[in-house]
Design a protein around this nucleic acid. Structure first.
Lengths: 234, 234
DNA sequence: CGAGTACTTGAAAGATCTCAAATTAGGTGG
DNA sequence: CCACCTAATTTGAGATCTTTCAAGTACTCG
């Protein structure tokens, strides 16, 4: 996605000295917990979520290998949301002072990181609009498309069939629905010939129609960093 | 909020050479419009929103004087959402190349800007959780509290009574509700003694209870940048 | 094989929306 | 300052969407 110089790459690689394994179902960070680390996910899958007073959970984001999460510690020194491993995972903790160090030494990398943050922010606002203004059916379709995009980004060979890696309860916590209603919406999408399901795997049968009903945009695919000042100017 | 050195301040001040006035009701930027500028709001009020296929609108954010908006152009070179003036406003356009310049020359300022972005991101996720998991009543209460916080930040003298500056339609577009239902929720909050209304002004009568029912957090108030490397190290 | 978790389905309750109409508020030209 | 015009608010009634509760079925892991 971006072309970095050798020293820039080296600096990024250096960040990942330590690794930390997290078992499926384990909490990596609790909400409001004091922390100055962010995390790069090497393998597995995480969710970022918040718990509301009434005990309900809102999943804010699915985190896939290659994703960074927890940049908020830059501003707060504590985690505004919890991190939970949905699969056995390996993360690389990075302290915020290391981030500051990168910004000082490699401003182009800083801008690239800022761009990544903006991609996530755009994704977040897409989801906001979905929760505010789309039907349950559309929101469920949106999750399916989002997961497919991101699984495919890890594994080029992913076709239209893939394993969700999520329970319907979790889809509900991401879409603001109950597990029961998620189930009904999945069935409806199936009955309408948009998807097929079997053995915990989903097949997107009519991607065009799915994308239309979910207002789907692949934000990461739209990134343009070609305007960044060249390495020579650094 | 942050302590910058004189040259850092000067660089920031320099960004605002030009100004642009926007009349109430005018669109400053359209969704998907090619643009390489972000904006600092000097006076007035803006909303950032997206339109969905069915014509419904989701307001993503209220923008008050002092706010920056449109950092997404760093990644996309186009606006992922529209900007509309809710009041006569004055903005200062800043090109993304100027931002890059700041990052290169003043890394501490870059980190401070990144922190501000994180505050907004946290606010965005708060709203996401609200839309996904909170009742209509709670979401309306949350908007009232949010507006109060931000109006107060502009004008220290703001007490518990303030002018919304929004129609119920707009509150609805922010909370994912219809104007009709917003009206009913306002009335309910009023009947329950949480707020009072008259002449387009709202009074928060029982702030504690409002904050509890809205899961309210003032993210900006929680920022801690004391860990940033001192100016001397720059 | 058994226990627990996830999935599925139905029926009824609850929340929110839609539609329609009446009332109020604000802004403008005379 | 008034009269008018339009936008905003308010209210009711019924429709629609989503949740809740309850129960049964299917999987998965040890």
């Amino acid at each position: 996605m971006m072309i970095l110089t050798a020293p820039e790459r080296a600096a990024l690689d250096q960040l990942g000295e330590r690794e930390r394994s997290v078992r499926k179902g384990m909490t990596l960070v609790r909400e409001n917990e004091r922390s100055t680390e962010l995390y790069a996910l090497k393998s597995g899958m995480l969710i970022a979520f918040v718990l509301l007073d009434d005990g309900s959970r809102q999943i804010l984001r699915f985190i896939f290998p290659g994703d960074l999460t927890g940049m908020a510690v830059i501003a707060f020194g504590k985690a505004p949301h919890a991190l939970l491993a949905l699969a056995d995972s390996v993360v690389v903790p990075i302290d915020r002072t290391q981030v500051a160090d990168i910004v000082f030494r490699f401003p182009r990398v800083a801008l690239a990181l800022a761009a990544l943050e903006q991609v996530e922010r755009a994704t977040l606002t897409d989801r906001l609009a979905g929760l505010g203004r789309m039907s349950a059916r559309a929101r469920v379709a949106a999750v399916l498309l989002d997961l497919r995009d991101r699984i495919r980004r890890q594994d080029e060979n992913t076709g239209d069939t893939f394993a969700l890696g999520l329970t319907q309860e979790e889809i509900g916590d991401a879409t603001g629905l109950t597990a029961v209603h998620v189930n009904r919406m999945l069935r409806q999408l199936e009955e309408q010939g948009l998807i097929a399901r079997s053995g915990g795997r989903v097949t997107l049968l009519d991607e065009a129609r799915l994308m239309r009903s979910a207002n789907h945009v692949d934000r990461l695919a739209a990134v343009d960093l070609s305007w960044l000042p060249g390495p020579s100017e650094a």
